[in-house]
């Protein structure tokens, strides 16, 4: 059973604001989903390796060479608060 306190903790890890109503609803919904997922724990997979990529790709490297990219003014165009050629944010607390 996921408590309201746990919901608040997970939301804070995710930097996600939730309304009081959302917090109340979320616990029950997560419980229902986790209950249905629970059955994967019945499988004994101690000797099975995990899969992260379906083609089993591991690191893909390329030469570290500079190349032309987006001009700075273009890259800043979608920014909510561009300032002095940078992305401005509120006080870092």
């Amino acid at each position: 059973m996921i408590s309201e306190e746990q919901v608040r903790h997970v939301a804070s890890l995710a930097r996600l604001g939730l309304t009081e109503d959302e917090i109340k609803e979320m616990g029950g919904q997560l419980d229902a989903i986790l209950d249905s997922i629970e059955k994967i724990r019945e499988l004994d997979l101690a000797d099975t390796p995990p899969t992260a990529n379906p083609l089993n790709l591991s690191n893909v490297l390329r030469p570290d060479e500079p190349r032309p990219e987006l001009p700075r003014e273009e890259a800043l165009a979608p920014a909510p608060d561009p300032a002095d050629d940078l992305f401005a944010v509120p006080r870092i607390d």
Binding site: V7, V10, A11, A14, R15, L16, G17, L18, T19, E22, M26, Q29, L30, I33, L34, V89, P90, R91, I92, D93
Partner: peptide
């Protein structure tokens, strides 16, 4: 918002719908 963390939380609260929030939480 006043601080950057509050800005993240409020932006994501206002910007994401119910299913996106549910999956982020899960």
């Amino acid at each position: 918002a006043d601080g950057v963390h509050e800005m993240y939380r409020k932006t994501r609260e206002a910007g994401f719908g119910a299913e996106a929030k549910r999956r982020i939480m899960l």
